[in-house]
Amino acid sequence: MDRLVRQRPRPVVRRATSLPAGFATCGEFGWRHQAHGVEIVHRLDAATISDSTMIAGLLPLVDLGVIAGQDAFEAAAVGVIRTSATTEARGWAAFYDNSLQELRSGDSPFSPIHRRARSLILGDSVLEVGSCFGFFALQCAEDGRQVQACDISAGAVDLLIGNSRRRGAPVHAVVGDATDLPFADDSVDTVTLIHLLEHLDEWAATTALTEALRVARLRVVVAVPYEENPSEHFGHLVRLSEADLRGWAGTVGHAGADYLEDHGGWLILTPPG
């Protein structure tokens, strides 16, 4: 999130009740090229903004080449959220509330992944590493678990803290690097890395797993997407398969590894000792 604030130039995003003339139409979104770059118009509002509707609106623009790269995609996404309501704060609140409702109801494409991850948690306490907006951490807190979260982005952590307080779902969120977790040894029952390792190179992925095993008492849960091509706009660096999961398991110390396939790949590790 901090990177998005510094990035220049970035797409200009605004909301309109109807798509104006001169814009190419793509669902609830429209776009046009200008001298300063691309201008995007959308019709999402506080009732309809969510992680899934925002992504569904932007992905066709990626396919068309209107948005290219992670920085432009994230800047456009943040722009859509900020302009979806009468104030930025209301836009973020609606984004969180609607996204969490969709994840709970099964209407989000990510619902099966979060449901599976929550089913794999052992114990009462959980740490989400690479939490981003923190939707998974918030669901775990609303399930009654003791939840911590960390992300490398201070902006994302601030958003999670604010919405955790607003929703009354306690999450202790801090800025932290997956390769150097700011948590003590054996301090959390389950550590999750949900759709994180595809963002990392080989050294960082192995180090992140080692760190997760250091912090976890009972279990480490890893989920990765299986893609034909890494999604550059999401910041995915590598194409992963079960062979990669098994390779990681072979390079870190653990007391057992299990593998699943459910909307991507899963690696469940038992910490040593």
Score class of each variant (00 low, 15 high):
M1E: 09
R3G: 04
R6D: 09
R8D: 06
R10C: 09
V12E: 10
A16Y: 07
G22V: 10
C26L: 12
E28R: 13
E28Y: 05
F29N: 02
W31G: 05
H33G: 08
H36E: 15
H36R: 15
E39I: 06
A46P: 03
A46D: 13
S52A: 15
A56L: 11
L58R: 01
L61D: 03
D63P: 04
L64Q: 15
L64K: 14
G65D: 11
V66D: 00
I67F: 04
G69K: 13
A75H: 00
I81S: 01
A85H: 00
T86D: 14
T86M: 07
T86Q: 12
T87W: 08
G91A: 12
A93T: 11
A93I: 04
Y96D: 06
N98F: 02
S99M: 11
S99D: 08
S105F: 08
P109G: 11
F110N: 12
S111Q: 08
P112I: 14
I113M: 12
R115Y: 12
A117K: 03
I121E: 01
S125D: 15
V126H: 05
V126Q: 07
V126P: 01
L127V: 11
A137G: 08
L138W: 04
Q139F: 06
A141R: 03
Q148Y: 11
Q148E: 14
C150N: 06
C150E: 06
G155M: 08
V157M: 08
G162T: 03
N163V: 03
N163W: 00
R166L: 14
R167V: 06
P170A: 15
H172S: 13
A178V: 05
A178C: 15
D180K: 07
D189R: 04
L193G: 00
L193A: 04
H199D: 00
E202M: 03
A208T: 02
E211M: 12
A212G: 05
L213F: 02
L218N: 08
V220R: 01
A223C: 07
P225S: 13
P225C: 14
E227L: 13
G235F: 10
H236D: 12
V238Q: 08
A243W: 08
A243S: 14
A243E: 14
D244H: 09
L245S: 02
L245R: 00
R246P: 01
R246I: 06
G247L: 11
G250N: 12
G250S: 14
V252L: 01
V252W: 01
D262V: 05
G265K: 01
W266H: 04
P271D: 04
G273M: 10
